[in-house]
Design a protein around this nucleic acid. Structure first.
Lengths: 109, 109
DNA sequence: AGTATATATTGATATCTATCAATATGAAGG
DNA sequence: CCTTCATATTGATAGATATCAATATATACT
């Protein structure tokens, strides 16, 4: 079970030096957010509490369908999105737990 | 002037879709944090309020001196570190304003 | 079954990046 | 000036990645 008020899962980056496993994991999350197209896709989905359909995203980011598919897969693999099929469509939602580590790391600012 | 309690400089990612310039800028910050070695370097510096000397960092990250120099340059270029020469040594400190945009983006979690 | 639509995979390519050895620069001290 | 020490730059290379066209898969509808 997971309460709404759970503490940050990592100390802020000013509090302790990252060990190697933590660096590796966090680098994955940041890598997923390190491409402008992926950031924009993530943003398009995050801005909607109900999530968004992959079919709506080719236009806004101005990339081919395979490229969009590739990026969405990367975001999901990093634990930043969850995927659900609804008939012919795939719906994505932000996975907030995936973001939490990265966010708590930067909490010092 | 900049108060200690200044508001986040960007809305959280759940509040508004990122425009292209914002995506580009933020992707740069995340890209700087997307390598495990760079994250660890950043962490080594961030953990010390007085900053850290480049000369102390080759050992902990287990990379050659040119590689460390290369990564520190990348972190500085992304606006995440400030640099100061002291005699033969270069001292780095975290530039918190550089982090603030990225942090506020993830504030939703 | 056959067609249309949404998404994924494959294969190819151009660009980027992490890394190191070798070398250069720059500062301090004799 | 010459040497030493700290850092930066250059040049090379192996591996990653962003992209698309072509094709495959999966679902829905008739």
């Amino acid at each position: 079970m997971q309460t709404t008020f759970s503490a940050p899962s990592r100390p802020a980056i000013t509090e302790a030096v990252l060990d190697e496993p933590s660096s590796n994991r966090l680098a994955e999350v940041f890598a997923a957010l390190s491409d402008p197209v992926r950031l924009r896709l993530f943003s398009l989905i995050a801005a909607r509490p109900e999530g968004a359909c992959a079919c709506e995203m080719v236009g806004p980011v101005n990339r081919s369908q395979p490229t969009v598919s590739h990026h969405l897969k990367a975001l999901e693999a990093a634990g930043l999105l969850s995927r659900e099929r609804r008939g012919r469509w795939i719906w994505y939602q932000v996975d907030r737990s995936g973001l939490r580590d990265a966010a708590s790391l930067l909490d010092c600012c």
